[in-house]
Amino acid sequence: MTSILVLNGPNLNLLGSRQPEVYGATTLADIEKMCADWADANGCTISFAQSNHEGALIDHIHAARGVSDGIVLNAGAYTHTSVALMDAIASVDLPAIELHLSNVHAREDFRHVSYIAKVSIGIICGFGARGYIMALDAMQAHVKD
């Protein structure tokens, strides 16, 4: 059975109330429920984690080694700044998908840079909460190939 870590970074705990015009009205709990329902329907196990702290995210990535088959990572603003997260993903030898609720390429220039993309099998952005299901479908297909 495929096991996927869905890892969310800074400020994603505020989904639903933080800039709904950019990120939508769906809460992180709603997204986790949606993902859990997807997992039940697709014979997959999912673990969830969220932290506003870079080191805690790195700890979750390290802990996924030997436990999870892949990582779906919405690193939030750390996407554009964290060499440490990039190195952590590269170090665990697990496929990772970079995920964003908004289309980062239609936003400020600094959001066009991604350290996570350099070590990811793909990027999904701009589809709101549905992007999580897209990422899970893509990860499950990748792991099965």
Rank of each mutant, 00 (worst) to 15 (best):
L15I: 11
N11Q: 06
Q140E: 12
A29R: 12
G126M: 09
L136R: 04
P20N: 08
G76H: 04
G70Q: 03
E98S: 01
I133Y: 04
V92K: 06
E32M: 10
I46H: 04
G76A: 14
M139E: 04
G76P: 03
A56D: 14
A141M: 14
C35M: 08
G70W: 01
N8G: 00
G24I: 09
A77W: 03
T81N: 11
G70N: 11
K118R: 15
N42C: 09
I89P: 01
T45F: 11
G55R: 08
H100F: 05
N52E: 04
I4P: 00
A64Y: 03
V143I: 15
R130T: 12
Y115E: 03
V72M: 02
A96K: 01
A56R: 14
H62P: 08
H62Q: 12
A88W: 01
V67F: 10
G76V: 09
S102P: 02
R111N: 11
P95Q: 10
L73F: 08
Y115T: 02
I61M: 04
Y132R: 02
I133N: 04
N42G: 10
G43Q: 14
Q140A: 13
N11M: 07
M1G: 15
A84C: 08
K33F: 12
N74C: 06
I89C: 15
I89K: 02
I46A: 02
L94H: 08
A75P: 01
G70E: 05
L73N: 04
A36H: 09
E98C: 04
M134Q: 13
G66P: 05
G122P: 06
Q19E: 15
V22W: 08
T27N: 03
A129N: 07
T2E: 13
Y132A: 02
I46S: 01
M134V: 07
S47F: 03
D30V: 05
R130I: 11
D37P: 01
I124M: 10
I31T: 00
H142R: 10
Q140I: 13
L12W: 00
G131Q: 05
D30M: 08
I133A: 11
H142A: 12
A129K: 15
V83G: 10
A63G: 06
H142V: 08
V119Q: 14
H105Q: 13
V119K: 12
R18N: 09
I4M: 07
E32V: 06
S47I: 11
M139F: 12
G128V: 06
L99H: 01
I124A: 04
D30P: 05
D37Q: 13
S114C: 05
I71C: 07
H112P: 10
S82K: 03
A90R: 13
W38V: 02
W38H: 07
H62C: 11
I133G: 01
H105L: 14
L101Q: 04
L57W: 00
A90H: 15
